[in-house]
């Protein structure tokens, strides 16, 4: 009896996992269908795969949007790491006056709704000629990810035992040397997953992108939204575009899931 329940629960788990994954799977599949087959009811699984949708969206210029997304994501993450990691290090390793308040303030900036800053940003960007430019988006994405990076990196730095650094400093290493030679290698897995998570957020960001970019700097989320309004009926080619938009971060996410949990919970949970 117990075995039976256990088997039933396992089966239920499989079923639910399949249900959760199904919409994504279906998009991946539909991208290879012809437009006619994509809207058949009941939906078919037996169909002749075609690459014509990918041809269509390449002709529509998906590559340009893809490259915009890649640039905005990579550059903003790099900037956010360069600024955020040292701050996280300082907040973990050194005695900082009013550390709690500083930390709380940093995290709270992430809570500030985009709705509360978007109007001035639009007007400021307009004056600075930053509208529809990747530079503008990169600046904002970096600002959006710094609090997250500090939150996560702090928990990884917390795990580094202080004796190791101390020993290095007694041997004459400077602060910077001990950071690069001793601490950084120790937190590398955490650093990688932090970087990947902020890449996910930058890649998926939409509010800034849709209000502050039009064509030149539009990223994939903006491209997808305009695809929906203009050619929403072409479900097959839209699926192909969606596949290109989600697959990179999906793969990043699959690789980071374990570290992600650790980084997000440890800082706050560790007793």
């Amino acid at each position: 009896m117990k075995k039976l329940t256990s088997g039933g629960l396992t089966f239920l788990t499989y079923l639910l996992a399949f249900l959760f994954f199904f919409p994504i799977l279906w998009v991946l599949i539909t991208g290879f269908k012809s437009e006619g087959e994509a809207v058949i009811i009941p939906p078919t699984i037996a169909f002749k795969p075609t690459l014509e949708n990918y041809q269509v969206i390449f002709d529509l210029g998906v590559v340009g949007y893809f490259l915009n997304s890649v640039t905005a994501t990579l550059v903003s993450t790099l900037i956010a790491l360069l600024i955020g990691v040292p701050a996280a290090y300082a907040l973990t390793m050194y005695r900082v006056k009013r550390r709690d308040d500083i930390l709380f303030w940093i995290i709270s900036t992430r809570f500030l709704p985009i709705a509360g800053v978007i109007i001035p940003l639009y007007l400021i960007f307009k004056n600075l000629n930053l509208l529809d430019s990747l530079t503008g988006l990169i600046i904002l994405y970096a600002g959006m990810n710094i609090p997250l990076i500090i939150w996560m990196m702090r928990s990884f730095f917390n795990d580094v035992s202080f004796e190791i650094i101390e020993a290095a400093q007694i041997d004459g290493a400077t602060g910077i040397q001990s950071f690069f030679q001793i601490v950084l290698p120790l937190v590398r897995p955490g650093l990688v997953s932090t970087a990947l998570l902020s890449m996910v957020f930058a890649w998926n960001e939409f509010f800034f992108a849709v209000t502050l970019s039009y064509h030149k700097a539009a990223t994939l989320p903006v491209y997808m939204a305009s695809f929906m309004t203009q050619e929403g009926l072409f479900w097959a080619s839209m699926s192909a575009a969606a596949t290109i938009a989600i697959l990179p971060v999906l793969i990043l996410g699959w690789f980071t899931q374990k570290q992600l949990v650790r980084g997000l919970t440890m800082g706050a949970v560790k007793g």
Partner: peptide, 9 residues
């Protein structure tokens, strides 16, 4: 997986 899909998609 759904967590990593961009909101627009």
């Amino acid at each position: 997986s759904p967590f990593f899909v961009m909101p627009t998609v």
